[in-house]
Design a protein around this nucleic acid. Structure first.
Length: 388
DNA sequence: GGAAATGAGCCGCCTAGGTC
DNA sequence: GACCTAGGCGGCTCATTTCC
């Protein structure tokens, strides 16, 4: 690893990229949070979930829709899908242009209200671009292929109710601290949402075991050990179980103080060595993943700070997005330079095994990232039209 | 159509101050 | 003194409105 730890890397970023800000450490920490989001997004894209993803949707609490929370990423069933070819000569591709072309093909847009987003503007791509919304769904658009003068667009309608949600958190280390970070308090906000969103709820029994409870529409319910019940729901085709179920996934950056060292000084990912803060997160999300120091610093070092010529463009885009007096950020989960998007996708595809190795599964214990991929694939392929 | 302004909301870092 | 919580705040994104 090029840097001893992400905390060292954060200092390098503070010095090299964020020196102009009032508080360089804070600004570089904030940027690291954005990078955790980007890595997660491009992993999901590479897993083939691009058209299921929505970004920052207000998600209602289960059984209490008066309270909603914006969640980083949510995965939604696709209820309708269509393709369009449009001429690239337009300066930018707006919702208006797409909707007009779509209407001309006979696509029924009754009940939809237009959004004013731009799919492509000044070579900046909008990821998960919403072009219209209706009471029960969102209409989004992505670029399927980009050849010659033509752009092939994929228009897809997502049902408003997601089947999975993701929250990404980076938690930094504070100078001189030996315990878990105090900033965990902010990460707990995400943990709260994870506990309130899904119809599958968590309760403890008297001996301390985590149980799951899920209500059916007639008021009857099932109680079983949590992970067992969760798996049953994911692999069932029972409308009653799947209807309001949302798989919750938390992704936190590693932190030197998250885990108590074992007596021989080694790191252990078994639960008895978690600090309290990590236990809170692990028991709140269905899945809790670590993005390791190694992974985050690999990404930053190889693609952003010291890239080979093939990736130089990423460095340029990143630096121009965070420099003093920058005009527009084109290196975030939503706004991404289109060429940077292409390079990132290629890197993630060519190095998928490496990228996947950047993640450690904290909970459920004994499961791997491949299991998560399988569970998401299983949920994606449900017959949602009959369920919802 | 698109840039600029505005406001809501989130992220992450840090400090003050309380408790044991 | 170690540990913990509440709250401030800089930085930023995103959606909506306003203006050109």
């Amino acid at each position: 690893m090029a840097y001893e730890s992400v905390d060292k890397l954060q200092k390098v970023l503070a010095e090299e990229v964020f020196k102009h800000t009032k508080d360089p450490k804070k600004a570089s920490g904030r940027a690291l949070g954005t990078l955790v989001e980007i890595i997660t997004y491009y992993l999901l894209k590479t897993w083939g979930l691009n058209n299921q993803i929505s970004i920052e949707r207000g998600l209602a609490e289960y059984g209490n829709p008066d309270i909603t929370h914006n969640v980083e990423y949510s995965l939604h069933p696709i209820v309708r899908s269509s393709f369009l070819t449009i001429d690239k000569s337009e300066k930018s591709i707006t919702s208006n242009i797409i909707l007009k072309a779509l209407q001309a093909t006979g696509f029924d847009l009754t009940g939809f209200e237009r959004k004013n987003n731009q799919l492509l503007s000044n070579n900046i791509l909008r990821n998960a671009c919403t072009i219209a919304t209706s009471e029960n769904s969102f209409l989004l658009c992505s670029i399927k292929s980009d050849e010659g003068r033509n752009l092939e667009l994929h228009i897809y309608e997502q049902n408003r109710k997601p089947y999975a949600m993701f929250e990404c958190k980076r938690v930094g280390v504070e100078e001189g601290m030996t315990k878990g970070p105090q900033t965990i308090e902010k990460a707990k906000q995400g943990a709260y949402v994870a506990r309130m969103a899904s119809s599958l709820q968590k309760i403890r029994c008297d001996v301390g075991e985590m149980q799951g409870i899920i209500y059916k529409s007639d008021g009857s319910y099932i109680i079983k050990p949590y992970v067992k019940l969760m798996e049953e729901i994911i692999f069932s085709s029972d409308k009653e179980l799947l209807r309001r179920f949302i798989l919750t996934i938390g992704i936190v950056s590693n932190h030197g103080n998250w885990i108590k060292k074992t007596s021989d000084g080694e790191l252990s990912f078994s639960e008895e060595h978690f600090q309290k803060e990590l236990m809170v997160l692990a028991q709140s999300y269905d899945w809790l993943l670590f993005l390791t120091d190694q992974g985050l610093s690999d990404f930053i070092d190889k693609l952003l700070l010291n890239p080979i010529p093939e990736f130089q463009f990423l460095r340029d885009t990143f630096l121009s997005s965070y420099k003093e007096d920058k005009k527009k950020n084109q290196f975030t989960k939503v706004q991404m330079n289109i060429e940077a998007d292409r390079i990132l996708l290629k890197y993630f595809k060519d190095n998928l095994k490496t990228v996947e190795s950047w993640f450690n599964v904290i909970s459920p214990s004994k499961k791997s990232l491949i299991d998560l991929n399988n569970e998401l694939e299983e949920l994606k392929n449900k017959n949602w039209k009959t369920i919802l």
